[in-house]
Design a protein around this nucleic acid. Structure first.
Lengths: 197, 197
DNA sequence: TTGCGGACCTAGGGGTATTAGGTTACTGCC
DNA sequence: GGCAGTAACCTAATACCCCTAGGTCCGCAA
């Protein structure tokens, strides 16, 4: 009987494609097995269980995404870098909705520590902000704001939540402009121990 | 045999509680039936199917949420209103994670049109922005930015994505400050037909 | 050539969604 | 108070899905 030639990597890659086609939470071991012409139970030799598959898919997608972002940001600084980062982020999220959804799942902290992708993401994000000359904790606050906005925007757009006729790409460009403004005029906390001459 | 006294409303309310307890996508007809001491099939007299239940839950949660936000924003304007809106939004999302998740599902457009909650949300959101003196399409762009940031922030926070030791509440306050700044210095599109003296 | 690891299978148990077709409790009307 | 109709709830059955236990047999290496 001809073997399907399953490996963990092929399984995860196929799961990623499946996710983009039918949505992350319709990625099922049965569907994956069907795709390989194999019984469900056969997958358990290569993947511990469904959660394991999802975790691997998340790590794959996270790595792919940060690679694209890194390439886009390379050699840029300031607003250029911000725009490149944001556009690469959104492009990936829209082109690969299933993979992108995978990156949003909660992952076991032990596995996260092993993954270099997360570290790279932090590096690149903080690097992109260097030009704005922020210091901690403002830096962390700014990173959180950017992550939240990027993610929220892509999630809402992918969910079809932007119904108004206004072009979404144009809105997005303006949102990034606005974030750039916010970063340049980063507010000082009210009641902070800053004294003006 | 004593009847459980099911109604659509009681079912949806119980589903909402269940969602907050176990997460929106663990809300199952079986679990709901168990909670009422009833067989799964019995629920189909009150709810068309799982999707119908989810949709009703989403509309319930959306209504609850905008009520809280409206109460918080009432009588405020400018930055005060922005902060009240944002805080009420986040408070609801964190206090009712399952209900909040329900508000993010894609809903049949026909049902959306029937729901007054969505209309009210738009009203209140645009009202809150009145003080910033924006005109279309800037207004729509600003609304999208705010929605995206609020949602992204709450989604990431609820998912435990903010690992840094920095206090999340403080970060949130600064993010709202930053959005206020962005709204006050709303950027004009590059290459726009504005001429400076 | 033979032995062994691993790729894949059969069988089966448990959970969930959904439909079809009962039965029985309640409600209103005479 | 009896009765009919409505609707609340049930049993039974199908179809997926996740996962475990325990084979079988292919292909590579000694």
């Amino acid at each position: 009987m001809a073997r399907a030639g399953l490996t963990t990597d092929r399984l995860v890659a196929a799961a990623a494609d499946l996710a983009d086609e039918v949505g992350f939470d319709h990625v099922t071991l049965s569907a994956l097995a069907r795709r390989f012409g194999v019984k469900d139970a056969s997958l358990y030799s290569h993947v511990r269980n469904l959660q394991d598959l999802r975790t691997r898919l998340a790590l794959l997608a996270g790595g792919e995404m940060i690679d694209r972002i890194a390439a886009a940001v390379a050699g840029r600084a300031g607003k250029d870098a911000l725009v490149a980062f944001a556009d690469a982020y959104r492009e990936y999220a829209l082109a690969h909705p299933g993979r992108y959804a995978a990156t949003q799942i909660r992952i076991d902290q032990d596995l996260v520590a092993d993954s270099p992708a997360l570290l790279r993401t932090a590096e690149i994000t903080y690097g992109m902000l260097r030009a704005y000359d922020l210091e901690e904790p403002d830096l962390t606050d700014a990173v959180r704001l950017l992550r939240a906005t990027f993610h929220g925007y892509c999630a809402l757009e992918a969910a079809g939540a932007f119904g108004a006729p206004r072009d979404v790409q144009a809105s997005w460009d303006r949102a990034i402009d606005a974030l750039h403004v916010a970063l340049e005029h980063w507010p000082h906390p009210v009641g902070a121990d800053r004294h003006w001459a």
